[in-house]
Structure formats: structure tokens, C-alpha cells
Design a protein around this nucleic acid. Structure first.
Lengths: 115, 115
DNA sequence: AAGTATACATCGATTATCGATGTATTGCCA
DNA sequence: TGGCAATACATCGATAATCGATGTATACTT
């Protein structure tokens, strides 16, 4: 990757949790949903996704179960735990604080203070 | 550092370039200025700062000279090159694109489209 | 029959950032 | 005048996040 390209940059956990807030979803679907919501601006490979899911599950922010009902390969479906909902609120606030701070330093437009 | 803490996260180069856009400044002063503009929300140690300055200088986005006029230790004063001004425009746009995308996925307020 | 999309997973490499440590000067205050 | 904090440079190893490549398998489409 070219140096200094802004990619996922530390927000992957928040992105995943935010997607799971809407509904339980399997790994592959989470990645597609993040791409879709961001109009393909945010995208990452499996080597980024699956370790992140494992870390979030280990921290009990998400939990998983296998869905073998549909056709095709079995899907590992993840859902937010109560602790994960709390964590989402935390990282969402952290993101707002951080991005407003960067805006200030970079001299971008102020965004509404409504958190 | 705790896992999943949003820190500088890939924007350090942009932050430095943005500060230097206002006026030439030495390393220590750049760090203080970023802290000050962000109300201490963005902060980092010398082990982060100096390698970043060296990389930016190697890429010819900034250039340096020693200021021995004042009291105290000599200051290495950095200033933006024309190429650095271009680079700043590029990373500033990249930051806006990126942060708007994260906002979309995280479900934050939309920020004004005025770039 | 071939190719694409879905869906899981691992692995090593790279890179950014962190945290600790070191040197030296200046100014302040007790 | 002794000590501490602030200023100001710098290096170094550790860590953690992310990348990119690779692998398996099924399903659907052409």
C-alpha cells in the first residue's frame, strides 16, 4: 500500500459493531454491508475481517452461531451482545471526538455538535 | 495501548502538513500546535513525530533548516514545499472522503457536503 | 465446462505508532 | 545554588493493525 493512504485506520471494530447493530449478519455479509453503506469507499480483505471478528468475539462484544439452513456453505452468523452495544456507543463517541479533532487541526468545516 | 483505541490512526502526515501550511515551524512546536488546535485530544510522543518528519522530508513534502538565532537548543524548522502543498490538498480530500464514509457506516450525522 | 459470487479460514510481511530512553540547554523558584 | 520543569533534538525495540496472498468448497449462471 502507498504510504499515508487512509484506509480502515483503527475504526474497523466500530464499523463492524455498527453494522451488527442493525441486524445479526455473517462475516462475508458484514464486509459487503460496510462496502455498500460507504459506496465502496471502505473495503478490506478477509485477512482483515476474520481476525477482527475473532477478537470481538473473544472480548464478548459479539457472539456467533452457525446457520446451516440456507444453500451453499454454512454461515457463521454474528450478533451484538449487550456488552457489544455498550462498546459500540463508546467507539461511536470516540470516533466523533477524534474526527472533530482532526477536522479542527486540518482546518475542515465544523460539523454539527449534535452527537 | 488498549486495543481499538482511536489515536492518530493514519492521519499524522496530514496533521503535520496542515500545521505547516499556516507557518514554518520546528518539530516540537508542531506537536504542541496539534495538541493545542485539538484541545489536547490529539497527542503523540517524539517516537512518532520525528520519524514522520523524516519521511515527509524524504518525500520532499517538507524541507528543513536550522534556526540557531534564539536561545536554547537549535531548532530544526520545517516548511511546506510546493509539492507538500499539493500533498496536503490530496490528504485533506482523502480525510474528508474517509471520514464521511465512516460517518455513513457508523450512522453519524451527515456533515455538510461543502468540501 | 468455465467462471463468478458466496463463504469460510490462515499466514507471513509490512507499516504505523507507541513507549522508553538519552542528551543538552534554559528559565524559574525556593 | 540546587533542583525541577519545559524546551528541543534524537534513536530504538515492541506491538498491533492491516494488507495481500493463498487455500478450500459450494452454488449459480452462461
Amino acid at each position: 500500500m502507498a504510504r499515508n493512504t487512509i484506509n480502515i485506520s483503527g475504526n474497523l471494530f466500530g464499523l463492524i459493531l455498527a453494522v451488527l447493530e442493525s441486524a445479526p449478519l455473517h462475516g462475508y455479509g458484514i464486509a459487503r454491508e460496510i462496502e455498500s453503506r460507504s459506496a465502496d469507499a471502505l473495503s478490506f480483505g478477509e485477512g482483515t475481517l476474520y481476525p477482527a471478528l475473532r477478537a470481538l468475539e473473544q472480548d464478548r462484544f459479539i457472539e456467533s452461531g452457525w446457520d446451516t439452513s440456507g444453500p451453499g456453505a454454512a454461515r457463521k452468523v454474528y450478533s451484538l451482545t449487550p456488552s457489544g452495544t455498550q462498546e459500540l456507543a463508546r467507539v461511536r463517541q470516540a470516533w466523533l471526538d477524534y474526527s472533530r479533532s482532526v477536522d479542527k487541526v486540518m482546518g475542515a468545516q465544523a460539523r454539527p455538535t449534535t452527537a
